[in-house]
């Protein structure tokens, strides 16, 4: 555990002693802020228009009409941002030769992977945490429900964690950071749009494609639903990503 934390600490320091973490966090917050503003603006105008009509006015729901689309937008921004966060994790060490230091230290491969993974999760948490500031306004001037809101954040976190696991895998494959990011984008986008093909597919293929699609599992979270199916999906996704990374690194042994 100590070893994992040592690696994580080093990675976090690297993130914050270079502009990467700041750039990613800044752009992420700025974009989320913009989406929040525009969705809020639309929601306000709706509220103004419906103010005369109590029945409709009652149906206005800030969780469903502001947070749900906002979470959808945030998930896409995460898809664009996280590969940039993970691309350097192994690629940079391979390129600069520092892997040799890591692999000749008495650390297990799992400790190295988990340390790096943990560091990225912490940056992800910071990114999501920053957007929490926006909710100060909704709670001050509105009445959103807390639990569905937290469910949405949990969904974002799990999805981001899955993205990072994919990113760390591709980073272990190449010493080129750009290639690592491109492969991660490609894989994530593919999983994202997988169920678009399901309308043309047969019944079994459809259910498989639907099950594999990342976004399919995310929607419920934005509505405030935490379903174990989805939890299992994301956790297995994460495990698979990390396991493949481990296999790639171990494969040095039999190449």
């Amino acid at each position: 555990m100590n070893n994992i934390w040592t690696i994580a600490k080093k990675e976090i320091k690297t993130y914050f002693s270079s502009p990467i973490a700041y750039a990613v966090m800044f752009v992420f917050s700025a974009l989320v802020g913009f989406f929040f503003y525009s969705i809020m603006w639309w929601f306000n105008s709706q509220a103004m228009q419906l103010a005369q009509n109590p029945t409709y006015y009652q149906q206005l729901n800030i969780n469903q009409q502001v947070y749900s689309p906002l979470f959808g937008n945030m998930s896409i921004i995460l898809l664009l941002m996280l590969p940039l966060l993970t691309m350097r994790l192994f690629s940079e060490e391979k390129k600069s030769g520092t892997v040799e230091l890591l692999y000749t230290s008495p650390l297990s491969v799992w400790q190295i992977i988990l340390g790096k993974y943990l560091a990225s999760l912490i940056v992800l948490l910071a990114m999501l945490g920053l957007t929490g500031i926006l909710s100060i306004f909704t709670f001050a001037f509105g009445n959103p429900e807390l639990i569905p809101l937290l469910a949405g954040y949990l969904g974002l976190f799990l999805m981001g964690a899955a993205f990072i696991a994919v990113g760390i895998f591709f980073s272990s494959l190449t010493e080129n950071q750009i290639v690592s990011a491109i492969l991660t984008f490609g894989a994530l986008l593919l999983f994202w749009v997988l169920n678009w093909a399901s309308s043309a597919a047969g019944a079994i293929a459809k259910s498989v494609l639907d099950y594999l699609s990342i976004f399919q599992h995310f929607e419920d979270f934005t509505k405030g639903i935490v379903d174990t199916t989805h939890l299992v999906y994301y956790l297995s996704f994460i495990f698979l990503g990390l396991f493949l990374t481990h296999s790639v690194i171990q494969s040095r042994r039999w190449r």
Partner: peptide
């Protein structure tokens, strides 16, 4: 690994 100190050909440094 515990009893070896190793300086690889490319010195493994973190420039930051």
């Amino acid at each position: 690994k515990r009893i070896i100190g190793y300086l690889p050909e490319v010195v493994p440094l973190y420039p930051e």
